[in-house]
Amino acid sequence: MDKVRKPKNIFIEGAISPEKIAQSIANHSSKTEIGGHSIFLGQVRADQKENGAVIGIEYSAYAEMALEKAFEIREAIFEKYPLTCMHIYHSLGEVKTGELCLFVFTSSKHRKAAMDACEELVERIKAELPVWGKEILDSDEHVWKVNT
């Protein structure tokens, strides 16, 4: 019988800590059928804008819609790739430059599936998830971020 997957809360208030990432990796050491993991970490950059330097990003989302979309993306990626595990964590609220705002972690028996799935997952999250970032500039201005 197939395991029924349920939507999970992917949101974390504030930055994603290195300890959370380390614990997530450690939690998989008992899953000995896994042969490869692929991890993507999104970090807030200190971009220089016309009106100042970015010192942080304030993330917001239409949470219910975003969680439904994340679940839809998860299911499509699970269908396409032979994965053992998949985890998505995205920040909400303020994240300072140098801190982590996105953590995507895929696992599979073989590395290629984990790497390909992770890359596609990140691209789909950036393109499809209703999450918005307002860049906080050192000039006290706030401007909507445009994903590139």
Rank of each mutant, 00 (worst) to 15 (best):
Leu67Met: 13
Leu121Trp: 02
Gly98Thr: 07
Ala127Trp: 09
Phe103Asn: 08
Arg74Leu: 01
Val4Ser: 14
Thr148Lys: 15
Glu68Cys: 00
Asn51Gly: 05
Gly133Arg: 13
Val44Asn: 00
Gly42Arg: 12
Trp144Pro: 04
Ala113Trp: 07
Gly93Tyr: 13
Leu129Thr: 11
Met65Ser: 08
Val54Arg: 03
Ser30Leu: 06
Lys3Ala: 13
Val131Lys: 09
Asp140Arg: 08
Phe103Pro: 01
Ser38Phe: 12
Tyr89Lys: 15
Ala53Ile: 12
Lys6Ser: 11
Ile125Phe: 02
Ala63Leu: 07
Lys109His: 12
Glu94Ile: 12
Lys20Glu: 14
Ala113Gly: 02
Trp144Gln: 09
Ala26Val: 06
Ile16Phe: 10
Glu141Ile: 04
Glu58Asn: 15
Lys109Asp: 02
Lys3Pro: 02
Ser30Ile: 03
Glu141Lys: 14
Gln43Arg: 13
Ala15Ser: 15
Lys96Leu: 10
Val146Cys: 06
Asn51Glu: 10
Lys126Cys: 04
Gly14Pro: 13
Glu141Pro: 00
Tyr59Asn: 03
Gly35Gln: 07
His87Asn: 11
Lys20Leu: 15
His87Leu: 12
Ile88Leu: 14
Lys6Leu: 03
Asn51Trp: 06
Lys96Gln: 13
Ser107Asn: 02
Val104Ser: 02
Gly56Ala: 15
Ile73Tyr: 00
Glu79Trp: 01
Ala70Asn: 12
Glu123Gln: 11
Arg74Ala: 04
Phe78Gln: 00
Arg5Trp: 01
Ala61Gln: 09
Val4Arg: 08
Lys126Ala: 02
Leu137Arg: 08
Ile88Trp: 05
His110Asn: 08
Val104Met: 08
Lys109Val: 01
Gly98Ile: 07
Asn9Gly: 10
Ile10Tyr: 08
Trp132Lys: 10
Ser38Cys: 15
Ala46His: 10
Lys8Asn: 03
Lys31Val: 11
Ala15Glu: 15
Ala70Pro: 00
Pro130Glu: 08
Val146Ile: 13
Ala117Tyr: 06
His110Leu: 07
